[in-house]
Amino acid sequence: MILIHIMDILDIPPRQLLLFVDLCQTSSITKTAENLGLSQPSASRHLSMLRDALRDPLFVPAGRGLAPTPTAIRLLPKIDSLIHEYERLPGAAAISPPEMSGIVRFATTDYGAMVALGPALQRANNEAPNLAFEIFPLENDVFARLIDGRLDFVFFSDDPVRDGIEHYDLFEEDHVFIVRNGHPLTQRQNVTKQDVEEYSRLLVNIIGDRHSYVDDDSLGKATPGMWVPYFAAAPFLVTQSDMVMSIPKRAADSFAASLPMTILPISPEEEPFTYRLLWSKQLNDDPVINWMKELIRDETQQT
Rank of each mutant, 00 (worst) to 15 (best):
M1V: 10
L3Y: 15
H5M: 14
M7Y: 14
M7V: 10
D11L: 14
P13I: 04
R15P: 11
L17I: 06
F20H: 02
V21R: 04
D22Q: 00
T26S: 07
I29E: 06
N35D: 06
S39G: 15
A43Y: 07
H46K: 05
L47D: 00
S48T: 03
L50I: 11
A53T: 11
A53N: 12
L54D: 03
R55L: 14
R55I: 12
P57M: 03
R64W: 10
T71M: 13
A72N: 07
R74F: 12
I79H: 00
I83T: 02
L89P: 03
P90Q: 13
P90R: 11
G91N: 08
A94K: 11
P97Y: 00
S101C: 10
V104T: 00
A107T: 03
T108Y: 03
T108H: 05
A113I: 09
P119S: 03
A120S: 14
Q122G: 14
N130T: 10
A132M: 11
E134V: 15
F136C: 04
E139L: 15
N140Y: 15
L146I: 06
R150E: 01
D152S: 01
V154M: 01
S157N: 09
S157W: 05
S157Q: 05
D163C: 05
D163A: 09
I165K: 02
H167S: 02
Y168P: 00
Y168V: 04
V176G: 04
T186A: 13
V196G: 02
V196F: 09
V196S: 04
E197M: 13
E198K: 15
Y199M: 05
L203K: 07
N205D: 14
G208N: 15
R210E: 15
S212K: 14
Y213E: 14
Y213D: 12
Y213A: 12
D217R: 15
S218R: 00
L219S: 13
G220I: 00
M226R: 06
F231E: 08
A234G: 12
L237P: 02
V238S: 08
S241T: 11
D242R: 13
A252L: 05
A252K: 00
A256E: 01
T262W: 14
P265H: 09
I266S: 07
P268D: 06
E270Q: 09
E270R: 12
L277T: 08
Q282K: 14
L283D: 14
V288W: 08
E294M: 03
T303E: 00
